[in-house]
């Protein structure tokens, strides 16, 4: 069983912050306030989530679990759009569909086909697995959308040349779709290749700390890595394809007003 951290030992962890804060003061970097505020935010948010999850786990009701998952998806979607440089209002529903479709497909496969918990909506599996997928796909979702649209904007003449040479919209966007997808999956391919040697993944570490046998933890880790990779690609493609209708006008020209 895990060694439980009491409140005093948790608070003692904040002592570690004194070192970076000392360095910030010494270098007159002015990050002290931001650091303290962020650490406090993290603390409050995690305690609230911990409290909430305690009840979600106790209740273990399929609808409550689904509700929580939807909240996570909406939050992830807002954050993705905020960072992608695209107007939130125009894309919100389309990227929400992209993120939900990809997450539900891969987490559904993992939970229903591989793990098969009873009941299948068991919060102990559903919530952390979907949370990990969403959290890990966030950066790649931002990157794929941002790269795709900035790629076309920065190479507008080339894009128009494709159209002038007879390409349909889906043919003309293909080079930019390829670049966007590559930029989002390349880091993950590298991570998978070095996993276990350079990095010990968080989920595995968490399970081992929680008392699981390393071999059991490894199987979950492999599952989650493959889920993240598949979700990343599905979300990137679905997000981009669904966003085309609002991003291009009826003459296949990129609308300038889609950017923040």
């Amino acid at each position: 069983m895990i060694v439980e951290m009491d409140i005093i030992s948790t608070v003692s962890m904040y002592a570690l912050l004194l070192i970076p804060i000392g360095i910030f003061i010494w270098l007159q970097m002015g990050l002290v306030k931001e650091t303290i505020l962020s650490a406090l935010r993290m603390t409050v948010q995690l305690f609230l989530v911990g409290l909430y999850l305690k009840y979600v786990f106790q209740l273990n009701n399929g609808f409550v679990n689904l509700g929580w998952v939807i909240i996570m998806m909406v939050a992830a979607n807002s954050s993705v759009l905020g960072k992608s440089g695209l107007k939130r209002k125009l894309f919100f529903w389309r990227t929400l569909i992209g993120i939900s479709v990809s997450t539900f497909i891969v987490s559904g496969w993992f939970v229903l086909v591989a793990i098969r918990p009873d009941p299948f909506y068991d919060a102990r599996y559903m919530v952390p697995i979907i949370g990990m997928i969403l959290g890990n796909c966030q950066r790649s979702n931002v990157l794929s959308l941002e790269r795709f649209y900035s790629g076309i904007r920065n190479n507008e003449q080339e894009f128009m040349t494709y159209l002038m040479l007879g390409a349909t919209l889906s043919e003309a966007i293909r080079p930019y779709l390829r670049t966007a997808l590559k930029s989002c999956v390349n880091p993950s391919i590298a991570t998978m290749a070095t996993m276990g040697i350079v990095s010990l993944p968080g989920m595995m570490t968490g399970q081992i700390l929680g008392g699981a046998m390393p071999m059991a933890a490894i199987k979950y880790q492999i599952g989650i890595m493959l889920c993240i990779f598949a979700a990343m690609v599905i979300a990137a493609v679905v997000n981009i394809l669904l966003s085309l209708r609002v991003a291009f006008d009826e003459y296949q020209r990129l609308r300038p007003n889609i950017f923040q």
């Binding site: 040479l165 007879g166 390409a167 349909t168 043919e171």
Partner: peptide
């Protein structure tokens, strides 16, 4: 040959 990779040509 780029245009000939598009469906129309």
């Amino acid at each position: 040959l780029l245009p000939f990779t598009f469906k129309v040509h």
